[in-house]
Simulated assay, not measured.
Amino acid sequence: MKKMKNQLFGKSMLFAFAISALFLFQNCSDENPDSNSTESALKDSPVVDKLIEMGFAKERITEYENFYLVEGDLMFSKDIKSYSKSITDRHAHTNNLVSQTNVTSMTVYVAPSIPTGGADDWRAAINNAINDLNTISGSKVNFEISTSPSSDIIIQSDGNQLADNVIASAGFPTNNQPYNQVIINLDFLSNVTVTESSKRYNIVHELGHCIGLRHTNWDIRGETAGTVGANLIPNTPNQDPNSVMNGGTANYEWSGFSTYDLIAIKYLYPEPVILPQITASGPSYLSSGISLFTWTYTGNLANADLDSIIWWYSKVNGAGAPYGIGWGATGYFMAVADTFYSDPGLQTSNFIIYYTIRDTSGNLYRSPDYNIMKKGKFKLEGSL
């Protein structure tokens, strides 16, 4: 992808902040305009009309002596001639991404430096943010809270590293893995109270960076593609003021993903397509004794890598799952009764068998589920 240059603003656009090189570290701050500027009541003008046409809400536009300030940190020229060309920036991603395999299970460890109570406790917001990302329909992105300090991502206090007006920071993927840390400024804006909603917003934002999302407004902020890349994502607009990935939005409250945030994430990490073919045999209802199940791959996936087939066993109404129970185009596993439920209401519990397969390009696919009802508790006895 060629480096994109903003031809809209030229030298007429003003910036009240310095942009650091975006190689492996991305800061997200609450920038303020020049304190010497004089704010005035917003008046109708061709430029205001143009900004509204670009998707910005009128109530988020403030007029200063030499520029318009939009969304709290975006500066626009007051010269309508500057708007003769279209804006080039939009949702973008870095050259390096998390691999399609690793993105399905990224562990997150919240370090002890994040308090477990009080105003600086971000733990509930972290859990909510992870749930927001994990439940995007059509995406395979999955974060898991871990108790291990050797997790893929560590969320911790910045230890007074960040500037006062920077709320949090993260970086971009390397070696097929997510960036390995998110640091939080617990003294943001000299200990201003950060709402739970704003904490949630910022964690979603930083985890977005960890999996390769650039600032949606990267170009008009003066950020360059650099060596990390700023590859435009198809079917996203020139501007998305509602994107959680806009920079300079540290004080924003969480209100969900924008339509184009969802398009961007699903473009980068799509949910595997479910194949229509699966052949499995065995009892459909388990009640006692030994139960033997066999399977055969019957799909017709183009460029299928048959060596990549993995068969999975997953409890539906119980804890712990899924488990890999075998591999290859054919095989079997055996389940043996352990105990039986006396409560008839528990006799509707079940488990499923399914397989995953990759094509030669590395894309992952999943079969439909083979659903098996059971009356009691069963354990896996053997597989091949």
Rank of each mutant, 00 (worst) to 15 (best):
G299N: 12
Q277N: 15
S342N: 13
T249Q: 15
T356H: 04
P368E: 01
F351Q: 05
G212L: 05
I325V: 13
D164V: 05
S349Y: 14
F56K: 08
D158K: 09
F293A: 09
P33C: 03
S281E: 12
I211P: 04
T249V: 09
H205P: 01
S77C: 02
P322S: 14
T104W: 06
W295F: 10
A230W: 02
F76M: 00
L232N: 13
A16E: 10
I183Y: 04
P173G: 04
A129H: 07
S281I: 06
A329T: 12
A16S: 15
N175Q: 10
T94W: 01
N217R: 01
D120Y: 07
W311V: 11
S84Q: 07
L97Y: 03
T249Y: 09
F378R: 02
S37A: 15
P33V: 10
Y260A: 02
A163Y: 13
R200M: 06
S197N: 03
E59Y: 04
S84D: 14
P237R: 02
Y179T: 09
N242E: 12
D73E: 11
E196I: 07
E206W: 02
P115Q: 12
A302F: 04
G138E: 01
K266W: 05
Q181F: 11
K58V: 07
I167T: 00
I310F: 10
P33W: 08
E253N: 10
A304R: 06
M245P: 08
G331N: 01
V110G: 02
S139K: 01
I19F: 12
F76S: 02
P149V: 02
K199C: 00
D158F: 07
T104Y: 08
A168K: 04
G320V: 05
L346F: 13
N303E: 06
I136A: 12
G345Q: 15
E271D: 02
K43I: 11
I52W: 04
G208D: 07
K377L: 05
Y267N: 07
S146V: 06
T296M: 14
G138S: 04
K78C: 00
D158R: 03
D30L: 11
A230S: 12
N160V: 06
I265L: 11
A16R: 15
I126S: 06
R90S: 13
I130V: 11
N180Y: 11
E59A: 11
P237T: 06
I233T: 02
L42M: 06
D164F: 05
